[in-house]
Amino acid sequence: MDELDILKKDWHKEKPEHKKLSTQDIYPMLHKKSSSIVKTLFYISIAELVFWIIISIIPYFTSNSYKKQLDSVYTNDYVFGALTAFSYAIILLFIYLLFKSHKAISVTDNAKKLMESIIKTRKVIKYYVIYNLAMAFISMVLGTYFAIVHNPELSNTIAHFSDKQKLIAFAIVTGFTAVFVFVIWLFYKLLYGLLLKRLNRNYKELKKLEV
């Protein structure tokens, strides 16, 4: 006889070590908090949105001179205005995409479909992070460039640099920015890697059945 058929005979028996719960035992369970990865993922995506929005507005509120500088740039420079409008549009787009993909996660789908919807949500967050990191990188490099151009003292100093020194200064700024972006990227890799390790493994196992 097959091993599983031996097991089948015992399978439906209630086990004494897990007492049968009464309705009174079940009621309080409905009010407990879920610890599912979908919930965690949801909180992460909210935190992600809030974090990057705060990062982009903090300088505006903390430094008066920066505020003044920005205000003058915005009123005088249409490019900056358009860029800001664009970045808010992107945030709105991501909020919409996140909402949609979270809505699509249904525990009553089949196992594979459920995993796919979660992976899709994770991808939306991933693209949002990539977008923000790219923007952070570009604005740090551009910001440094503009600071040099618009600050007479600084540009004066730079003007006295030899070509080699200029190159070194440029390399330092770019290198520093790249390391910053890389560290944040690593952090995300670790975060999602830990959270979705089991899901990825199980999804791979299911996919393997198809080949």
Binding site: S35, S36, I37, V38, T40, S106, V107, T108, D109, N110, A111, L114, M115, I118, L195, L199, N202
Partner: peptide
């Protein structure tokens, strides 16, 4: 998920899905 449960599926069959999905995918 219960509010979306419709009588057209057997409650037990529906439980299999949710139970397994939770064990395999959702549960941390």
């Amino acid at each position: 998920a219960y509010p979306k449960f419709r009588g057209d599926a057997k409650f037990s069959t529906w439980m299999y899905r949710v139970g397994l999905n939770t064990a395999i995918t959702l549960y941390r």
